[in-house]
Design a protein around this nucleic acid. Structure first.
Ligand SMILES: NC(=O)c1ccc[n+]([C@@H]2O[C@H](COP(=O)([O-])OP(=O)(O)OC[C@H]3O[C@@H](n4cnc5c(N)ncnc54)[C@H](O)[C@@H]3O)[C@@H](O)[C@H]2O)c1
Ligand SMILES: NC(=O)c1ccc[n+]([C@@H]2O[C@H](COP(=O)([O-])OP(=O)(O)OC[C@H]3O[C@@H](n4cnc5c(N)ncnc54)[C@H](O)[C@@H]3O)[C@@H](O)[C@H]2O)c1
Lengths: 216, 216
DNA sequence: CCTACTTTGTGAATGAATTCACAAGCCTGC
DNA sequence: GCAGGCTTGTGAATTCATTCACAAAGTAGG
């Protein structure tokens, strides 16, 4: 019956972690809305799931609520931030200063959640040296020595698909620990490097499938 | 033992559909690479899964391979396009001409797969009327009558989180059938509207969790 | 202090997705 | 045309995730 975010004793499903992130985002809104306590039922409604799922998700990490009452919003917010590893800052590099890389580099939603963009890289000589929002675009060739001096844990990959694997190999040998990939290819990484991909074409195609097959 | 993409008799898991999309993308590369036949093993290697999974995924829709030989690349490509509903064109509107909306409107990867951006909308008077890449930014107030004249099936939502639900309600009542959401909120839609969300903060937080808890 | 009511936390049950394992089918070479 | 080698297609087994259902624990009000 303790409330500490105990270190995961068994493997936690990715789906659980993603829901925790959704709960956290809603809770941060609730705090500013001045609500002091919240039930699993309410959390579920705004997280697109069920109250049993919410309680099960939380139960993997400890016991955070009061029976008959619900969860204290500030405490649960804090616990979720701790579970997700958001109490520290993460350094992020963006590789590929094209259309999507530029949008991401300027996105304020990253910084406000502890993800600091520390550098932007490209290979295009015309882009190297130019800057926006305080970031000078640097030559990707300097990435290994840069990471040696000022380490970054996470890379956001926004380069064309045909050079994505080469860019990953370079990042991995430079010591990066996690990659968020926007190129529509399946990348190979060593087991100790975390990888997530955002594949927008895949999302659109899954919508296409659903529209096509709704009349089942 | 027929090869037609028969209409789904039982519910197809979303994870299956997403993998089909990945297989298709790799196959399109294989064609240009001049490979005429491919095994489930090879497809699996490049799709980040197992050969049994590939065969099971395909088996929901028919029988596309030759035993002892594998799959004919052009035929399988065609079948996957048919299954995913990609033999037609889809009209797409982008709502929110900000940083991410702009990047998406200019992205060539959509058009090349049959998703045509037919309009871009915003509320900001300074943006309305300006144009890039052939798209004039239109006032979101005209969306209902525009969709009446020239229907679009899919909306890409790239507006701030606090107005996202209102924008969805407007799109739904204008008759949109599917939404790809980039705002980090859980949206409510009627059951007959398809919804996918791309939540980049969630991806980053899931990476943060993995980095934090690798030492389990 | 006791009763009525609420909501959590969690084993057990169910349901869904993946993996196993192998018969069936096709190709090649002799 | 038969043997040997390969690869598909698919039920059965297994693993993983969600939902159920209820005891336990708390609140509130008299
Ligand atoms: N633009 C979008 O909305 C969008 C949407 C979904 C996915 N994507 C994907 O994101 C990736 C980038 O798309 P984009 O539209 O920004 O393309 P882009 O052409 O505008 O930008 C790509 C950038 O990467 C740079 N680059 C090339 N090789 C590099 C390397 N080895 N190292 C570092 N930088 C390198 C290029 O110079 C260019 O500036 C692509 O894989 C694309 O499929 C883009
Ligand atoms: N920029 C990114 O890289 C990024 C990454 C992930 C998620 N997002 C999300 O995407 C959304 C947009 O982000 P952005 O960075 O492009 O913001 P932005 O402020 O650059 O753009 C938002 C645009 O939406 C317009 N808008 C506001 N209300 C509208 C309405 N009711 N109808 C139509 N248009 C409206 C604004 O005028 C503005 O042009 C946000 O929800 C953000 O959290 C952005």
């Amino acid at each position: 019956m303790n409330s500490q975010a105990c270190s995961a004793v068994k493997r936690i499903a990715d789906s659980t972690v993603r829901r925790l992130s959704v709960y956290l985002r809603f809770l941060e809104g609730s705090t500013s809305r001045g609500q002091s306590t919240i039930s699993s039922e309410e959390l579920a409604k705004h997280g697109g799931t069920t109250s049993a799922q919410v309680r099960k998700d939380l139960s993997f990490f400890g016991s955070f609520g009061k029976r008959g009452l619900g969860y204290a919003v500030p405490e649960l917010t804090e616990s979720l931030r701790e579970i997700l590893g958001l109490q520290r800052q993460w350094n992020v590099v963006i590789v590929g200063a094209g259309k999507i890389g530029t949008a991401l580099a300027q996105y304020h939603g990253f910084k406000s959640r502890g993800f600091n963009v520390v550098a932007v890289y490209d290979t295009d000589a015309r882009k190297i040296g130019s800057k926006w929002e305080g970031h000078v675009v640097r030559d990707v060739a300097s990435i290994t020595s840069d990471l040696g001096e000022r380490p970054a844990e996470i890379a956001v990959l926004a380069v064309p698909a045909d050079v994505a694997q080469a860019a990953v190999d370079r990042l991995v040998s430079a010591g990066i620990r996690a990659i968020l990939n926007f190129a529509p290819v399946q990348l190979q990484v060593p087991g100790d490097v975390a990888l997530r991909s955002v594949n927008m074409a895949m999302e659109l195609e899954s919508l296409s499938f659903e529209l096509t097959n709704r009349d089942r």
